[in-house]
Design a protein around this nucleic acid. Structure first.
Lengths: 230, 230, 230, 230
DNA sequence: TATGAATGAGACTTCATTCAT
DNA sequence: CATGAATGAAGTCTCATTCAT
């Protein structure tokens, strides 16, 4: 078992190790530019993280899903956490930017604006990577304070700001009378969050119709805020 | 997975509290019987799983928190997953049973009833192991479908039934006019869920005052449901 | 290749992975007390480090040489560097302590004392683990400043102190007249160091007879220091 | 740091680093012919190997230090070991050739000759790449038997031959009477070796004044060899 | 020829699980 | 029953080497 401990002039380990591999290498992936590859990795990461959570995810799986070698991941992301961060940075900002734009330009009533946003959310979040990402953030956020702070700064506070803007707009236009939505914008968002969580956990056997659910919320909310049609 | 059915007494006061009598001093095991030890393990597990998630939790830590040896865990639970299952299956009933009782017996207005429930939730959930458990279920549920189903059956559906009962009671008493809360009881619960999540993620630097938040929700909700004081 | 990325209620990775292993475990190593096992690990480490250097050594090999599992190493040493440190701490002190004792008690002439120490060195260092360790320290020391400092403090400075004591003793007894060995005790040690290095590098094809070499050094040294027989 | 966020193909680190020289870089290979490039690589290799040892050295670092791409290394050296070999085989001759010439031509006394050599060593070795090389050989030699043999043949034996020549010259001139330095020329070299090692390991906190140390050695040595002024 | 992104074997380390005491 | 040292599979990350450009 034990190599005799005498001084044997053996070949340096590092060198001899590699020399053993004789089979031909697998063909290298064909041209794919950096951004494309990065996207592929992020897509794979979303799948794997979403299936197993952060700690449970294996970078091996991410690499396989992305169709790259393990080492390649590290050419794009410093480590597992950076990969996670990249995910949040990529998939959520666009939706928020769009929502912000919609709110800024929307000409109609607050009710119609809310409807518009519900459509935006159901189409751009529910059933998309963004939804999985929200779920992932909720699940892993508490364990990654820095990531949670980043998410709060980049996503949550901006989302709530949009809500406040809408609510204030409604007040200004005399459509609603209560400022509760300005003071507690989270109330407006809560059902969407819960819908995401619900379908993630129970969707398989007791799905929640997000569209109808959010519409009901809209009615309840507007009435609660003193809605009067104008 | 099937928990032996049947009602468990509310916080079963442990059978015999080391009834006055001669304690036969064994050299080995300290004074802690099997059930007691099991509870200690589950309590430790809640802490550790809640802090690190399922995959991130170390049984070493659970054992240390519980004050037992690592091997001892395996005398009570087949493996890490069984421990997690035991955790969720254990401390679920009490709060719900209480809530159910309150609703059944409550004499006052629906508004007061809701207030009563808010107090119940803020006092019996927020800041207690139950809150950690909710958070844990949200985080890990998607990865444990059977457990999610169990949770849905034992907790969520019962909780929503209570909500429905309250809403129906309000309708019956003519206090509210909308049946939205009957059709989408999740709307009523959403802010509480979000409050738990919020404080878990952002509590450190942007805490949400759950009491005020839920009170605002109550006002919005009641008005939205057509509340009229009677 | 890629698992379908849909939400499959698959068994948590962590659990299923282990479940695959079905073969019977290797029998556990029979009783061996902690100290004994620690010694076995250190002996193995000396062999492996000595053969491959610090960076080139594989803990896998250390474990195999020691006849323990890889994880067991970490029950005794925090990491690879701690293992290295343990090596230095264990194998060198005894020789120094012995040398110190010899010098303190020796009754004869300085020449005889030096002869005695040459015997000590050739017998207790040359061809023993201590020799490999000295070689190892010389090779790796520059890369491990803390270890070098420790080595300097625990080994080198103590060794030089012994040399100084001998030289001073010779001066006091009127056997030698130069204080160069007090001022540069490293001069006295150098040939021993070089003998160790030499035989490590060239011993296989051009061995240096350490005994004769050190005896020559003794003669040269004593004459250089003004030796006069008394 | 404030790189404009435009869509400029971002500048490879490699190039930008070199940009220290202000002149605009041509797109392709700078004016550097094969031999020049090879020398640059070897110089870089000396630095890196010397800092980290063979196994610990990263070819990435070597490439960066040399200002070439990693792949380029392989156009000049078959693999890591070949690079190491090339390193040792390269810058060996000069110092020895010089030393040899000095000895052959020197007109003065042996004492003065030795002084001359001390100057040569302290100036041409200490603090130069050659010193790093000696240290490197000492550290890695045992792991590269062939290289050690080469080193022995090309450096050590030639160095010792020079020492023997000096000693014999002293005997012939009647300046010394002992032939110990002819029989054990390593004795003459030892302190220089130890000085190199010492300062490599302990130089940071307990530096050894090589000049004074070697002068003391010279005195001790000459007297030990029976020096008499003529 | 030079490049450097890609590769993948293999390093160190962790930790769920087992079992001799 | 309880213990905790031991196990070893599997994880993340590194880096010598290759090869399409």
């Amino acid at each position: 078992m034990a190599r005799p401990s005498g001084r044997q002039p053996d070949i340096p380990a590092q060198v001899s190790r590699r020399a053993a591999g004789v089979e031909p290498r697998r063909r290298r992936a064909p041209a794919m530019d950096k951004a494309e590859r990065r996207r592929a990795i992020l897509a794979a990461a979303l799948t794997v993280f979403s299936d197993h959570g952060f700690a449970g995810a294996r970078l091996d799986d991410v690499a396989r899903h992305a169709g790259v070698a393990k080492g390649t991941l590290y050419l794009h992301f410093a480590d597992k956490e950076a990969l996670f961060r990249g995910l949040v940075e990529q998939d959520i900002a666009p939706v928020l930017a769009d929502a912000d734009a919609v709110v800024g330009l929307f000409p109609g009533s607050t009710r119609d604006l809310i409807d518009r946003l519900i459509v935006l959310i159901t189409q751009r979040v529910m059933g998309t990577p963004a939804e999985a990402l929200v779920r992932l953030m909720i699940a892993e956020g508490p364990r990654f304070p820095e990531l949670a702070a980043f998410y709060h700064r980049e996503v949550v506070s901006r989302g709530l700001a949009i809500v406040r803007k809408i609510a204030q707009r409604g007040l200004d236009r005399g459509e609603i009378t209560s400022d509760l939505a300005v003071r507690f914008p989270q109330l407006v968002i809560s059902p969407a969050i819960v819908a995401v969580i619900w379908n993630g956990m129970f969707g398989a056997f007791d799905p929640l119709d997000a569209k109808a659910f959010l519409a009901a919320h809209r009615d309840l909310l507007l009435r609660g805020l003193g809605w009067r049609d104008m």
